[in-house]
Every structure is written in C-alpha cells, then in structure tokens.
Design a protein around this nucleic acid. Structure first.
Lengths: 217, 217
DNA sequence: TAGATTGTTAATCGATTAACAATC
DNA sequence: TAGATTGTTAATCGATTAACAATC
C-alpha cells in the first residue's frame, strides 16, 4: 500500500480508460478480471496495469485478480468522481450547445450550473434545462457559487480573455475546446485542452504515412 | 537529412502543435525563430524541438534559426495537409451537426464530402451546404468516391457497427467521437479517438489532487 | 571574422517490461 | 494443498536532455 509517490501523466491519462473499460465489463456482468485479461482487452501489458494500480495501492487479490466493481469504485474515487465537482459553460454556439445537450456530466461526477454568452437572443433562455446568463455576470456568479471548472467554447479571438477572467474569478480548472493554446500563469489552475485540429492532423499524418508505405514498400 | 527512421507517437503528437504555433507566429508577422524561442513559447526545451525536427530533416539554418514560413510549410507537408484528404460524417445529432457547421476542415487539408444519418427528417437536407444521405447509401458512396476518413458521431450503441461498416467499405482512418473504445481488426485502418470523458476525468483528477494538497500540504 | 544557432551524437532520465517471491 | 495471480523490485527500453562540432 503506497500513495501519491508522484504519479506520471502517462498513468493519469490511462486512469479514465481503466474506468471506462471497467464500467463496460460491469455492464456485461463480469465480476472478476485479471491484469492479463484487462490488459488484453485494452492493448496494454499485464505488467503495466499492475504497475499503474500499484501507484495507488493494492486493489487486487493474489491468485484471484481484481473485483470489477471494487476496482471501478476505487479508480472513480481516485479520479474524484464523487467529489461533487461543478462547472459552467462559456459560449453557447453550436459546439457549446451540443455539449450541453449531449454530454453526460453527471456520469463523470460534474454538475453543470449555468452557461454564459453575450448574444441577447440566448441570454435568459435555457438549454436542456441549463440557464444561460450574460457573460457580464460571470464574476458575480463564480463569487456566489463554488465553480470548479469553466468550459471554454467561445470564439478563438475571445479565448484568452475569457480564460483569464475564469482564472481571475477563481475556478480551479479550465476545459478548453477552443483551438488556442491557452496561456496559464497561475500555478493553482489546471488547463485541459481538447484540440480537434491536433487530433485530425495526427490522423492525417498516420494515413499519409500508410499511403507512402504502399507506394514504396 | 534523414527520413522516416521510425518516428515515435510522442513526436507525432507534437507536430500539430508546432504547426499551430507556427501559424500564429506567421500571423503575428514573425519571420524567423530559434529553437529556444519556439521552445519557450510552447513549454518545450530547445533540444527537444531540434531533436523532433531532426527526425524529418534539416529545416533550419545554423547561426540563424528557422524561417517561420518554410518550417510551417514543411510540417504541413509532413502532416499531409496538401494531400487533398476527404472525409464523411456519420451521425448528424447535436455534436455531428456542430462539427459540420464549425470545424474548419479545409484549414486542415480535408474536404467534407457528405454526412449520413437514418433520421428521415434530416436525410435529403443539407447542413452548412453538406448533403445528408441515408446511412444505407454508405457503402455505395464510399465505393464511388475516394473517402479517406469517416467521422463517427453516432450513438454509442451503433458505434462499433458503423465503425466496422466504414472499415469494410474501405476508409483509411476513423475519427471517433463516440465514448467507445472502437475495436479495429484491420492493420490498414487507423482509429483516432476524441474522448471528451477521458479529458474531463483527467481534469477532475488534477483538480482533486490539488485539493488534497491544500488539505495536507 | 566573431557570434549565434543548428545538426547530431552521447548521457541521462523516466516509463515500460520482466521476473519472482508472497499469498490468496 | 496446488495453481493462479498479485505486489513489488530489478532490468530494459525509449524518450528527453545535454553537449559540442559544424557552419551560416
């Protein structure tokens, strides 16, 4: 049993995948799984899985494996799913709206408190039950409510300014969907970005390489 | 000058970031940049940048640095931006629609040919000028047109089946936005996933850790 | 030319894999 | 008990960093 000896980002990025895989196993009625079976289903080695879990403590049973329910629960706890995190959305364009309507925030332990925009046509309305407020009210809202995360889906030109306002207002994390590398001067704020462009260009590279290989094998 | 000696995924994932950063520098009118300046602006070491670029050839000039225009062009070429890639979208729910309307496909070297759905209310219409066809026509369409990538935004229950159909039909890459770990049996097809959930849970972990540290410093 | 900065090899660091004793 | 599989340390592999000669 050891704890927090300094967990690498590589491990951290695998935790949500473990959680997702375990949820699927749970739904399929699987009760118990060994590191080698879990590894096979995820494309990892058994060793790596045991090493990863070893960062947080001994969740398995020697000679038996891991209980799916228990392990899922433990990893969920490590990820902070039960901490009652809250978030707000900045920008209710197509993407912001789609995320508000589609994304299962509660499944990931988040409560969506409000959305913010400057368009008078949407301010005062609701999107999927979430009230849309004017961006001018941002600071007051964050001061009056505990807001852990701000989701950024504003136009790229407004990204840094709204990001700064969020940090200034006191959020602890920014979930950045703009195609902009948000500068973050505050050591107490975490920025996590979803860059569609980077993802598509990676795919573009990979299929281009394949093409080259076919041409000159 | 060397080429394709086996480039690690770590390097590949940084290429789109270089490209993005260089585009921004170009817009700001910067003509020339050194590896150390570029590194500082991206949070990387100068050594790492030179090492990364060294995988593909010598793009710089000793004593001078890199020409922003030229380097951007070279990296764009490596990423395959000028190869005239094409793609189709499967699923025109909120997210699919938002991506069709918002995402700058052409900036990333992709042409969006068509969207597919099964809802009679949208089949036959257009979204941002993109025709929506019935999913039944998928195979015929891919057979008749060169389609490099299929973008998946279907409900999670349909993800694997539609992914299989795409691979079967002959696409070379799948850009997966469903929260499902797509199984890919074909070695000639690349799957690149954008898992919102994994990203938010990573952020959740990071802000939870921070909290713990504040409690027990 | 002198100064700057790359291209490229070598050294270091960190992450993954292997191994095996502990134990359920 | 015997078999299986973890927890945990050691070995290996790969990626990052450092160093410096080449050269613009």
């Amino acid at each position: 049993m050891k704890r927090n000896v300094k967990v690498s980002t590589a491990v951290i990025r695998r935790l949500p995948r473990y959680y997702r895989q375990l949820s699927e196993l749970q739904e399929s009625g699987v009760v118990r799984i060994s590191s080698s079976a879990l590894g096979k289903s995820m494309g990892l080695t058994a060793s790596q899985i045991r090493q990863d879990l070893f960062c947080f403590g001994g969740f398995g049973q020697q000679g038996y494996g891991y209980k799916v329910d228990g392990l899922k629960e433990e990893i969920g706890e490590i990820l902070g799913i039960s901490q009652g995190h809250t978030l707000i959305v900045l920008g209710t364009g197509n993407l912001g709206r789609a995320i508000i309507q589609n994304f299962r925030f509660s499944t990931n332990g988040f409560q969506l408190l409000a959305a913010f925009d400057i368009d008078p046509a949407v301010v005062g309305t609701q999107i999927a039950g979430v009230p849309v407020r004017h961006a001018d009210e941002l600071e007051d809202f964050v001061a009056a409510n505990r807001v852990d995360v701000g989701l950024l889906t504003v136009p790229i030109a407004a990204a840094q300014r709204m990001g700064d306002r969020l940090m200034e207002a006191g959020v602890r994390g920014i979930w950045n969907f703009t195609n902009y590398e948000l500068a973050c001067s505050r050591p107490d704020v975490v920025v996590e970005s979803v860059h569609f462009s980077d993802s598509l260009l990676t795919l573009s590279y990979l299929i281009s390489q394949r093409e080259d290989m076919e041409e000159n094998p």
